[in-house]
Design a protein around this nucleic acid. Structure first.
Lengths: 143, 143
DNA sequence: ATAGAAGCTAAAGTTAGGTTTAGGTCAAGA
DNA sequence: TCTTGACCTAAACCTAACTTTAGCTTCTAT
């Protein structure tokens, strides 16, 4: 199947300008053009977009993603490099999840803090509460 | 306790230039200066830095954090707004964690994909594997 | 008293990841 | 054929969050 840039933008939610930017950056090395010079997206590019989205949401930069996509063009010779890359990304994302969970607990503490302050009518009360009055699960996330 | 900008930078790992930038942005409205004009950080500012870090790692912009810090200066009158803010942040972070978990599963799929390709000596083999040969836990995360 | 480390400011520079603009060209229906 | 909506490029612009630079001042230890 073939798609125009507008169709791809519509289907994926990615702005047309972004798709052109990705192309300019060399993310779609094999994308074809019509005789008139109009981009023709194929399932190859749709798949590349899925990979881009995955890597981007793992925190990878456009530049590095581009590098990875170049490896894909090298065939089986680059399998090792590509494997390493995904394992490294996986570790990264696991760390990010842990960090976010820490953040989540701190936010939970603050939610409790403000809920309690509002119930008491003032912040002072909560500030002076002894530690054992703080719910156990968030006690260690006090800011 | 009082601290110089260098001490704070050292203790927190935040660059001196960043601390000055935060100050310029108005994040430390009550910070004092020595007679000579040198910044004097107190525990108030150290605490503010912890809040900044928490909110920043939840994805909040410096501008919004500054706004929140201004609310803090308004006393109990702004308790409601502050409470809402933290509850909204918490929801946001929960969504981010879910998104990252999705990303993690996609990366796991790719790790399996490349592990299998390398074991087989070629990518072609994995590409043509029937779906039921993909481990169950990642089957739905195929890209 | 003095040297040098640490601090200060204003303003310009940097980077990533796009978006916008201006000025055209292409393609499909009436 | 004509119109009009979709597409094209190059280049400039944008924003966030810092960092760097240049030139100057303050503080601390000898």
């Amino acid at each position: 199947m073939y798609y125009s840039i507008g169709e791809v933008a519509n289907a994926t939610g990615i702005a047309i300008s972004t798709l052109r930017y990705y192309d300019r950056e060399g993310m779609f090395p094999d994308m074809e053009r019509s005789n008139g010079g109009i981009r023709v997206f194929s399932d190859t590019e749709i798949n590349t977009l899925k990979v881009i989205e995955c890597l981007k949401s793992s925190g990878m930069s456009i530049k590095s993603i581009k590098e990875f996509l170049a490896w894909c063009g090298e065939g089986d010779a680059s399998l090792g490099k590509r494997r390493e890359m995904f394992h490294a990304r996986l570790e990264e994302v696991e760390k990010q999840i842990e960090a976010l969970q820490e953040t989540k607990n701190r936010l939970k503490y603050k939610c409790w803090y403000y809920d309690t302050a509002i119930a008491a009518g003032s912040e002072e009360v909560v500030k002076n509460l002894p530690v054992d009055e703080i719910p156990e699960d968030i006690r260690n996330y006090k800011i």
